Amino acid sequence: MLIFYLIFAFIVLFIFNTMAYSFCRKMELNELRSKKVYKVINMIMVTMLVCSYLRILNVAV
């Protein structure tokens, strides 16, 4: 189950980073602001993925 969840997390992070890249390009953000956008989005997504994994782990046990 852990391997499946890691693959799922990679796909989710890849999709969100692709959308963030499109957003930064469309809004014509400079490099510093786009790095901040990536950092915030990745922190939020990793937090959400960890919380959802812990929730799934509690349900499975």
Rank of each mutant, 00 (worst) to 15 (best):
Y5R: 12
N17Y: 04
I11T: 12
V40T: 14
V40G: 06
V59A: 15
S22L: 12
F14M: 09
L49D: 01
E28V: 12
V37M: 13
E31Y: 02
L32I: 08
E28Q: 15
L57D: 13
I41S: 04
K36H: 11
N58P: 07
I11P: 06
I41N: 01
K36A: 12
L49V: 06
K36L: 14
I44P: 03
E28H: 11
I41P: 02
N58H: 10
S52I: 11
F8N: 08
F4D: 10
L13S: 04
N17P: 02
M43P: 02
I3G: 12
A20I: 07
L54I: 15
T18R: 01
F10G: 13
V46N: 08
R33N: 11
C24D: 04
L54F: 14
L29K: 02
Y5P: 11
C24L: 03
I44V: 15
I11Y: 07
I44H: 04
K39C: 11
Y53A: 14
S22A: 07
V46R: 09
F14T: 08
I3V: 14
I15K: 08
L29Q: 05
K26G: 05
M27G: 00
K26D: 00
Y38P: 11
V50N: 01
L2V: 13
E31K: 05
V61M: 14
I7K: 13
V61L: 15
S34Q: 09
F23E: 08
T47I: 03
V40R: 06
M48W: 04
I7H: 06
V12T: 11
N42C: 07
T47D: 00
R33P: 05
V37I: 15
F14Q: 09
C51H: 03
L49A: 04
I3R: 12
V46C: 12
L57K: 14
C24Y: 01
L49H: 02
V46W: 05
V59P: 10
F16T: 03
L54E: 12
F14W: 11
R55G: 12
A20D: 00
N58Q: 11
V37D: 09
M1W: 09
C24R: 01
F10K: 06
R33T: 08
V37N: 10
A9C: 13
R25W: 02
L49E: 03
A9Y: 04
Y53S: 08
V40I: 15
M27N: 10
M27E: 08
V37K: 09
L13Q: 06
Y21P: 02
N30Q: 04
L2K: 13
Y5I: 11
I15Y: 08
R55T: 14
T18P: 00
N42I: 07
R33K: 09
N58D: 12
L13R: 02
L13K: 05
V12L: 13
Y38V: 08
I11C: 13
L57C: 11
L54M: 14
M45E: 00
E31H: 04
L6D: 07
C24H: 01
A9K: 08
F16K: 01
S52P: 00
A9S: 15
